[in-house]
C-alpha cells in the first residue's frame, strides 16, 4: 500500500496529517496540500476531517441513545434498550462512587465523554489505508479518521472539562474560596507566591494531562498500525508476519481505547468532585 509514496517517511507523514481548511498565503480560502500550507494558515483554520468525524460520531451516539431514551420504561428491556441501560447503570455507579455531591450535569457529562471518546477511538480499528484511499478517490489530499489522534480534539474536550472545573470551584467555594485554595495551600500565607505557582501548576496539569494522555495513547496506537501496514510492502513473509502483528495489536487496542475512554471519564468525575468539595 505504501507503494504510491516516495518513501516510508512520507507515507507515515501523509497518514498523520489532517485535512485542513483555511486561508492560504495568497489570500484565497481552501484545503491545504502539504505541511507548509497548513503552517501558513495559522490558528484560524480548521481540521475538517477531525470535526466531521467528531460531530458525526457524537450525533451517532446521541441518536442511538435517544432512541433508547424515547422507549425507556420500567418494563423488561430488550436488545439495544438493555445495552443502553447497562451503560447508564455503569456510568451512574461510577459517578455515585466518585462524585460525592448531587448534580444533574455530572452523570450525563460522564456518559457523553465515555461513549463519545470510545466511538472516536474506535475509528482507530478501521484499516489505516482504507480511509485515506477513499479520501483520495474523492479528491481529498488528506483524510485522518481518528479524531482523538488530533490534539485539537483532545484539548477541546479537556478544556471543556477544565472550564467546568473552574465553574464548579467558583460555584461551590466562591471566588474567594477558590483563590484561597490556590494561594494559602500547602504552605502558610507568607509563602503565597510559591503556593500560587504550585497550585497553579496542579490546576493546569489537569486538562493538559487529560488531553495528552488520550492523544498520546491514540497517536502512538495509530502510529503502530501505520508501521505494521508498512510491512505489507516488504514481501510475502513480512506481510504475513505483519498480518499477525496487526491482528494482535488490534485486539490489544480494543482494550486500550476502552480504557482511555474510561480513564478520561473517571478523571473528569474526580476533578469535578474535587472542585465541588468545600472541605480540603
Amino acid at each position: 500500500m505504501a507503494g504510491s509514496y516516495a518513501n516510508a517517511g512520507e507515507y507515515i507523514k501523509h497518514h498523520l496529517t489532517n485535512l485542513t481548511y483555511g486561508q492560504k498565503a495568497d489570500g484565497s480560502w481552501g484545503i491545504a496540500h502539504g505541511a507548509d500550507e497548513i503552517a501558513e494558515m495559522g490558528f484560524w483554520s480548521i481540521n475538517v476531517d477531525s470535526m466531521f468525524f467528531s460531530i458525526g460520531l457524537g450525533v451517532v451516539f446521541l441518536w442511538l441513545f435517544h432512541r433508547a431514551a424515547k422507549k425507556a420504561s420500567s418494563d423488561a428491556p430488550t436488545g439495544w434498550q438493555n445495552f443502553v441501560e447497562m451503560m447508564i447503570q455503569f456510568i451512574d455507579e461510577s459517578v455515585r462512587g466518585s462524585y460525592s455531591g448531587k448534580s444533574a450535569l455530572v452523570a450525563p457529562l460522564a456518559l457523553t465523554i465515555f461513549v463519545w471518546i470510545f466511538l472516536l477511538n474506535l475509528m482507530d480499528l478501521i484499516a489505516v489505508d482504507l480511509v485515506p484511499w477513499l479520501g483520495a478517490l474523492m479528491g481529498l489530499p488528506y483524510l485522518k479518521i481518528v479524531p482523538t489522534t488530533d490534539p485539537n480534539i483532545t484539548f477541546g474536550l479537556s478544556l471543556g472539562v477544565f472550564a467546568l472545573v473552574i465553574f464548579y470551584s467558583i460555584k461551590f467555594k466562591g471566588a474567594g474560596g477558590f483563590f484561597a485554595e490556590l494561594a494559602f495551600h500547602p504552605f502558610p500565607k507568607y509563602m503565597m507566591p510559591v503556593n500560587l505557582i504550585l497550585e497553579g501548576v496542579t490546576l493546569i496539569a489537569k486538562p493538559v494531562s487529560l488531553a495528552l494522555r488520550l492523544f498520546g495513547n491514540l497517536y502512538a496506537g495509530e502510529m503502530i498500525f501505520i508501521l505494521i501496514a508498512l510491512m505489507y510492502s516488504g514481501g510475502m513473509a513480512l506481510g504475513i508476519f505483519g498480518g499477525f502483528l496487526q491482528l494482535g495489536w488490534a485486539i490489544f487496542h480494543i482494550l486500550v481505547i476502552t480504557l482511555q475512554a474510561f480513564i478520561f471519564m473517571t478523571l473528569t468525575i474526580v476533578y469535578l468532585d474535587m472542585a465541588s468539595q468545600t472541605e480540603h
Binding site: N18, T20, S50, M51, I55, G58, T112, I153, G156, G160
Partner: peptide, 17 residues
C-alpha cells in the same frame, strides 16, 4: 499545531453534553 478545531470541538462538546 493548534487551530480553530480546538474551539469547534469545545462548542460541539458543550452542545452534545
Amino acid at each position: 499545531n493548534f487551530n480553530a478545531t480546538l474551539i469547534g470541538q469545545m462548542i460541539t462538546f458543550a452542545i452534545f453534553v
